[in-house]
């Protein structure tokens, strides 16, 4: 079979290179006589390696394939989003595109604090303040930051607690928190060793990640108390009048 094929190709090629023709003009062209070159093998087709090769598609098929791929991507995205919303709804209320944390027990008892001041951030707005006081049964002294991310698309508000004087208890809480972040991931930047909390977001994935962290850290009493009172701390950093009573 293959031999026959080669014979055909060879015959074809021999004819391809026709003998020199007498020029009929004033110029002359030297046509080389390829027949004197004896290439027995003939013309070969060297296909692209199968591992690289992609199916040949018409433009309509290519466009269809593109649309299908897009559809698949959207389907996946929608599925993920539905899952995120479901997880987030354990802790957040959804209204007008915002996922807002629902609990504030207003148990944060703070000493009179320094005034908050604006942070210099490139891509976001933020204020920070030293907070000193009692949260649950633990004294805290920390740098609290509230950062508003995003302008046009996904927006989020994040509270960060950076401990100033850490105790063995707070170190345990931080390491539990870090493990949870490693497991759940986070969509927003924060420094390792800090504790963060998303109070509001337009992005269900951000809320879902926070919800995941919260679920995984419920067994730490301090963190549980922190989530349940974080809105109050945030309000204080943001400069709002505090309704909670200050301890002496």
């Amino acid at each position: 079979m293959k031999l026959a094929y080669l014979a055909v190709v060879t015959a074809m090629l021999a004819g391809c290179q026709s003998a020199p023709q007498k020029p009929n003009g004033t110029g002359s062209v030297e046509r080389i006589n390829i027949e004197s070159q004896t290439y027995q093998e003939g013309m070969h087709r060297y296909p692209v390696d199968a591992e690289f090769l992609k199916p040949k598609l018409s433009i309509a098929q290519q466009q269809l394939a593109k649309r299908e791929a897009e559809k698949e991507r959207n389907r996946k995205r929608n599925l993920e989003m539905a899952e995120d919303v479901q997880l987030a709804s354990k802790f957040y209320a959804e209204k007008d595109g915002w996922f807002t944390w629902v609990t504030d027990q207003k148990q944060f008892i703070a000493a009179p604090n320094l005034k908050s001041k604006p942070m210099r951030l490139l891509m976001a707005d933020g204020r920070e303040q030293i907070v000193k006081g009692q949260l649950g049964n633990r004294q805290i002294e920390a740098r609290a930051k509230v950062i508003h991310f995003g302008v046009l698309t996904d927006r989020s508000v994040m509270l960060i607690i950076a401990p100033i004087n850490s105790t063995p208890g707070s170190e345990t809480s931080i390491s539990i928190f870090n493990d949870a972040v490693a497991a759940c991931g986070t969509a927003l930047p924060y420094a390792f060793g800090d504790i963060h909390f998303i109070s509001k977001t337009t992005n269900p994935a951000v809320a879902a990640k926070q919800a995941c962290i919260v679920e995984k850290t419920q067994h730490d009493r301090f963190l549980r108390v922190f989530y349940n009172n974080a809105l109050s701390i945030e309000q204080q950093v943001e400069g709002a009048e505090l309704e909670l009573g200050l301890s002496s």
Partner: peptide, 10 residues
């Protein structure tokens, strides 16, 4: 009929 090189390689 692409995806290949065609030659009688000399």
């Amino acid at each position: 009929n692409g995806g290949a090189v065609l030659a009688d390689w000399p």
